[in-house]
Design a protein around this nucleic acid. Structure first.
Lengths: 236, 236
DNA sequence: CCGTCTATATATAAGCG
DNA sequence: TCGCTTATATATAGACG
């Protein structure tokens, strides 16, 4: 953008690189802010210059919120760094980090339990609602499946029992042991009424455009060319 | 950029907002990638759509590394939180305990997100379902309350604005000015918020200001209209 | 939702003080 | 480094399939 075209490769001239960095950085921050406002998106942007200086932008000036939210997605799966390092100083740092993440998780958990909601903003409440709604669907589906299996199993047992009513209990057990997974755990028929619950969740919003399969978009690294998925089109 | 100028305010039309989001998002990711390559910078970009979907870009596809680095900046500031235990051996013990609790929490979190359900038994599923159902009720109640409050606030603001239509743009902004709760790292990002957006309209479209109210305010850095956060940085 | 096209608005590479 | 100007390269709003 400017007098000359530019190759997507590291700018060798140190001066130019610094100048370009400065200009593009502000452009990037500006655009981050714009999309945040225009599209009501939550944005977090972190930039380290070559020299290691930090620049950042975050919607509502609160990077913490963004990062917490981000970690929810990767369910804070970030590697629990093994502290097998000997450097004594690193222990307190590692401990502090872990503790901080712990607190984040605890807070999240309270939120998932519908507690401590006053600390959340509207957007976060909506997001939480949506998340739980989705979770609940998964859970009900899973429960449905579990119940169905058990249902079938019990029906089968009942059927066989009717065939040979003369058998005593011990014999029956022995006969069925091959088929029953984990004998002691089978639930009585009473739990079957739960099935109806599954069908109660009818009018819930499922607003996803069928594209929800990917939880996040992974960017492949590339030192020269723009990944194609990122390029709308490269004609003109 | 395009057929018409655009005001820096939330796009009300849902369709347009979504389309713009999609376009700008790829633009933003592209630029993040470009500055990363051209200027040899480390970039981490996180974007949540209104609906809560996550998009991200990270130099070398490793957000983790970026966040790690970011946190070093943060935690360097508040390392004081750690327990003041002196015995060297106790550190590893404390760390292990914390880690164990952490893992429990992580597993719970996954369950709350409707993941990893295979490890749950029927009773646990039912319990989880019940818990989430209850949570959802609380959350929806809280959300409704928040919405109501916001409505009231906006109505009040609108009313006040109608009372004093004489003020010019800057005076209004300055009147609303508060100290931004600068997040306290290298860059004291002043915040920018919805309210200021109302006044940023260049004087064309006077569409309704269906906007949210956030306490912090944009700080005019000079006689330019450029927000402070994007002003050139004076560094070494 | 995704891709295309076109007119315009913006971003920015270079050059200069 | 810093600002400012200018010529161009890009990004993208709006419309359509």
């Amino acid at each position: 953008m400017g007098r000359g075209r530019v190759q997507l490769k590291r700018i060798e001239n140190k001066i130019n690189r610094q100048v370009t960095f400065s200009k593009r950085r502000s452009g990037l921050l500006k655009k981050a802010h714009e999309i945040s406002v225009l599209c009501d998106a939550d944005v977090g942007l972190i930039v380290f210059s070559t020299k290691g200086k930090l620049f950042e932008y975050a919607t509502d000036s609160c990077m913490e919120r963004i990062l917490e939210r981000y970690e929810q997605y990767s369910y804070a799966e970030r590697k629990l760094t093994s502290p097998n390092l000997e450097s004594p100083g690193s222990w307190s740092l590692e401990y502090a980090k872990l503790k901080a993440r712990m607190e984040v998780l605890q807070r999240n958990q309270r939120h998932y339990m519908g507690e401590d909601l006053d600390s959340l903003r509207l957007k976060e409440l909506q997001s939480l609602e949506h998340q739980l709604d989705t979770s609940l669907k998964h859970i009900r589906t899973r429960k449905d499946k579990a119940l169905q299996e058990q249902n079938n199993l019990l029906a089968k047992k009942l059927k066989e029992k009717e065939k040979e009513p003369a058998m005593n209990q011990w014999e029956q057990v022995q006969n069925h042991e091959l088929n029953s997974p984990s004998f002691g755990l089978t639930q009585p028929l009473s739990s079957m009424n739960m099935i109806s619950d599954i069908y109660q969740s009818v009018g819930e919003n499922t607003s996803n455009g069928g594209n929800e399969a990917t939880p996040n978009q992974q960017i492949p690294s590339s030192n020269t060319v723009m990944p194609q998925w990122m390029m709308p089109h490269m004609d003109n």
